[in-house]
Design a protein around this nucleic acid. Sequence first.
DNA 1: TCATAAAATTAGATAAGCCTAATTTTATAA
DNA 2: TTATAAAATTAGGCTTATCTAATTTTATGA
Lengths: 225, 225
Amino acid sequence: MQVQLNAMQTQTEENYLKAIYRLGQENTQKVTPKGISDALGNSAASVVDMLRKLTEKQLIDYDKGKGVRLTAQGEKNAVLIIRRHRLWEVFLLQKLGYEWDQIHVIAEELEHIKDDSLPDRLDKFLGFPEYDPHGDPIPKANGKVPKSYSVTLANLKEGKVCRVAAVRDTSSTFLQYLLKLEIGIGTPIQLIEKISFDGSLVISIGGKDKTTVSQKFGENILVDA
Amino acid sequence: MQVQLNAMQTQTEENYLKAIYRLGQENTQKVTPKGISDALGNSAASVVDMLRKLTEKQLIDYDKGKGVRLTAQGEKNAVLIIRRHRLWEVFLLQKLGYEWDQIHVIAEELEHIKDDSLPDRLDKFLGFPEYDPHGDPIPKANGKVPKSYSVTLANLKEGKVCRVAAVRDTSSTFLQYLLKLEIGIGTPIQLIEKISFDGSLVISIGGKDKTTVSQKFGENILVDA
DNA sequence: TCATAAAATTAGATAAGCCTAATTTTATAA
DNA sequence: TTATAAAATTAGGCTTATCTAATTTTATGA
């Protein structure tokens, strides 16, 4: 049995690659089966199966010392999936008029559409957007990923003013909460006080009255500071 | 075990529904497992499995006398899949600049994207098109299907002039042949002569020199006569 | 360092969608 | 009307992606 290096990935394989890429980016911890299992909501047994498969396809390397790592090919593939996802999100919001909190789920399906020229055509049609509606940078066709924002609202010092640049959590629960608070990409926020007891943040949104949000909330807002 | 009347269909189920709908439209014969098997390229055994499943879901009725028939619900679902397919085809051609012969395959994937409001949003975004790029009518949101063209080039009497209104075959082989002959939707064609030996057609395309095409070709061109 | 908890892995099942091969049913034509 | 061909069905398997339950390995903390 030969190894099919360039074999097309299934949707499921793509979802695993994407998850591994995200986990590798977002924390400094190594990526473990448990982490993937939690991220995807699959059993650990399923994850182990898939890791074996992706290893055979040479899309990941896995040794317990370093955890799960994407190979060069695996990373390239993951980035292009994310490119497709983010381009479709722009399309859904800008062209079809969906709300912020609705687009993620639909883009999860659209990102798997298989056609070589589709992402580039869509990119052109959309006017080569730099960021998706959640503020995440859209990888280029060549696989280059523009730097994303990394300073969170919770990182700021008291008194600082900033603008919302991106959000980490893209769940509709979180995004609907933001809508309610009238926070979007570009909204100015002042961090008035950090409550040392639990990390809660007292903020002023767009110059309006004080609001208190949780530390978890603050860690999911990326700012341009 | 209860029957899940409104259970979401899988992509595969959707493809069967679509095939059964098409076969039911295009010929006066009853729809048989063999016909479906040929249409989809699956084994007869697989077809029988799926027919059982679709019957359980009350999307089809099957008795050997009448062949396979869509139930009211099955037909409604089939029509809405076709609506999605044709809307995406318009999008791919008009907005993303794909060629005539490339869009069908991609739309086969896009048609399965599951979001209730997507077809209507897309419809609106595209300006409520009446026909897809192959000249097929786009079913309305309420499930009404505008009447499609039914007179073929091969049906015409010698000497008649018509315009191409739609094509039956949407394979890229056929569409590329049309491109080569410079035939598109709206192209005027005169039927000069029918060769009685084999049904070949001598035609003039857009007023130009005579060309001879096969009967099969003529049966795949629908005209506005 | 050693007991226990957590994580990883293996073993064995399941469901969907497909297959081939065998069998049964239905058509067709001599 | 009966032999044969075609179509339909059944039986049994395969693959992918999932699961639970059992086992093994690795960490962790007393």
